[in-house]
Write a protein that binds this DNA or RNA. Sequence first.
DNA 1: GGGCATGATTACGG
DNA 2: CCGTAATCATGCCC
Length: 304
Amino acid sequence: VSVLCVATGLSIRGSQEEDPPDPQLMRLDNMLLAEGVAGPEKGGGSAASAAAAAAAGGAADSSIEHSDYRAKLTQIRQIYHTELEKYEQACNEFTTHVMNLLREQSRTRPISPKEIERMVGIIHRKFSSIQMQLKQSTCEAVMILRSRFLDARRKRRNFSKQATEILNEYFYSHLSNPYPSEEAKEELAKKCSITVSQGVGSTITVSQVSNWFGNKRIRYKKNIGKFQEEANLYAAKTAVNAAHAVAAAVQNSQANSPTTPNSGFQMKDEEFQLDSAESKNTLLTNMFTGGYPAPCYQSDGRIQ
DNA sequence: GGGCATGATTACGG
DNA sequence: CCGTAATCATGCCC
């Protein structure tokens, strides 16, 4: 009986503290702890993963795919824990099994406590090496997850259709001055995130909006022709929106003549002549006089 | 797999 | 810091 006690006693600490605290194992343990895989359940886990996310990249703005990341992380953690438990249990069972065998043998030959201890030691070493493997592969999984989801270094996911719709709508309705203010960017970011929220949970940040507009401006400017169709589409769309919004105000639309020239958009510090409201109005009058939406674009993308 | 679209990053200028 | 321009790396469609 006392032998069993020794066995279980060893099994409890056998896994964690080999007398020389293996540096490799320590490293793995630390990492698992830091990533929130090992350690306390839900609460601590999310906090730890949040910390990990913050450490991984640009603090607040790497909350981009947080929920996704977290889901996968908890999955990993669950697997890790059940496996760990399984090993623990198997180790105990195996130990008692060996103990029983030894006890049986002790009837036919003398067995020293030393030998028993040695046996137990072997078993535990074996199992802890298996555990180590588990920890190693768990670490690997976490690393892969990390690099896949929130490593700062580029990992690109296209915005949702709706998000690009919203951004394009803004871009083309402010074509003459497509430089959203900070507040406007915030609003756009919010709008994009909201309309996307039921999907994969991707959220769009202000800096992403800035990136988007940066890319859009340069690419639009570089090849206006390529974007003509798109421009028409969104101009028409905003015109329709405007039509609904300001239908009552049509009466004084006679004020502006449809001859205002305007070239694409001007580079930054220049004044913009054609305000979005104005452009909407001309489009509006076009709609009402000419019938179908499409405003007139010239070959270089000018509006009227 | 090639090729284009696209989001992110980098280098540089105000 | 905000912008542009170039570039990178990935997504996506053929």
